[in-house]
């Protein structure tokens, strides 16, 4: 089975996706959409310009702009065809008036609902798509701590924060679990935390075809351990009453529901929350292969590319009980 990029889908990956998408038509729709490039979505940087003014400017450049979600006018799709790279070369992009971001990647912050004056930790923050989205929601108030382990990716993160005019953020470069331990040791706590964990990226196959080549089951199992430890460490520094989002851009249940399940078992003062999203989502799994998970996990959201013409994502939201 080949994709439009001529990469072979690995047999085991196909089998696993078939188990997730048991309906034949659904599975075929999934395979079909992998051959289509994602829509050109952007997010208006409300720290610099209003959605209304940006839309007007972009339309005067001849672009056809659609705002797909009524309650989120800052989220836009460029519907007309553009030359390769045109979205990134436009003056409005160079001035930081919009951020190029895939629609599904905006969902974790829509779920987190950052508010002005909060203290928020973005534990795995590069390249900064979600950090800049948080800052915009907070109107540059409060404080964001944006952490990233890779120096190369920190440079990209810093450059994106700068371009978007984000002034309320501290950037740290530390392995996530170690950072959380140090923060705990010094008595730091956060109102909200985003753990957008490093993952196998199965949901990004449309825009990042290299994932086809890198995919293997060992990576999934190794990542699973790291993801669980990142989430558990972050939960320790969440304020009582605070909220935490765990998200990945993968479909693998070992990286999603299995992590959520082990956290629900480990901590007694945690409650999984319902999430209202402006797109079609499917409930988290309560069973995968031989594993049975808590029925509470059906409050988590699975986002499949064929449902909304996006990339794939997994999002779960929790509250720390006082």
């Amino acid at each position: 089975m080949k994709t439009k990029h001529n990469y072979e889908l690995k047999q085991l990956f196909v089998e696993r996706m078939q188990k997730l998408l048991t309906d034949k038509k659904d599975f075929q729709d999934y395979l079909n959409i992998l051959k289509v490039l994602p829509v050109k979505s952007i997010r208006c940087n409300t720290l610099k310009i209003s959605p209304k003014d940006l839309k007007k400017r972009l339309e005067s450049n001849g672009w056809k702009i659609k705002q797909p979600w009524k309650n989120y006018p800052e989220i836009m799709i460029v519907e007309n065809s553009l030359e390769p790279g045109e979205l990134g070369r436009a003056l409005e992009h160079l001035l930081g008036y919009y951020y190029i971001q895939e629609l599904a990647s905006m969902l974790p912050i829509i779920s987190l609902k950052p508010k002005p004056n909060e203290t928020i930790l973005d534990l795995c923050s590069a390249p900064g798509s979600k950090t800049t989205q948080i800052a915009a929601e907070m109107k540059n108030t409060g404080t964001i701590m944006a952490n990233e382990i890779s120096l190369g990716r920190i440079k990209i993160l810093a450059s994106n924060l700068e371009k978007c005019g984000v002034t309320n953020t501290l950037i740290t470069r530390k392995e996530g679990i170690t950072l959380c331990k140090k923060l705990k040791g010094k008595g730091f706590e956060f109102d909200k935390i985003l753990v957008d964990a490093p993952c196998s990226g199965e949901g990004t196959l449309r825009s990042s075809p290299k994932t086809y080549l890198m995919w293997n089951i060992k990576t999934i199992k190794n990542l699973s351990r790291l993801q669980k430890n990142l989430f558990a460490s972050a939960f320790e520094i969440l304020k009582p009453g605070g909220e935490i989002i765990y998200s990945t851009c993968t479909h693998a249940p070992e990286e999603n529901e299995a992590i959520v399940n082990s956290i629900l078992k480990e901590f007694k003062n945690i409650k999984i929350q319902e999430i209202g999203l402006p797109i079609k989502t499917r409930p988290g799994l309560t069973k995968w292969q031989e594993q049975e998970y808590s029925t509470q996990i059906n409050k988590a959201c699975r986002v499949y590319p064929q449902d909304n013409n996006t990339e794939g994502f997994f999002i779960a939201k929790f509250k720390k009980i006082k």
Binding site: N147, E162, I171, T172, R173, K174, G185
Partner: peptide, 18 residues
């Protein structure tokens, strides 16, 4: 608080923007 983070070797790389 910033000095506390810095002194605790949390890998503080940048504060705010250029």
């Amino acid at each position: 608080k910033i000095k506390n983070i810095d002194n605790s070797r949390m890998g503080l790389e940048r504060i705010g923007i250029y």
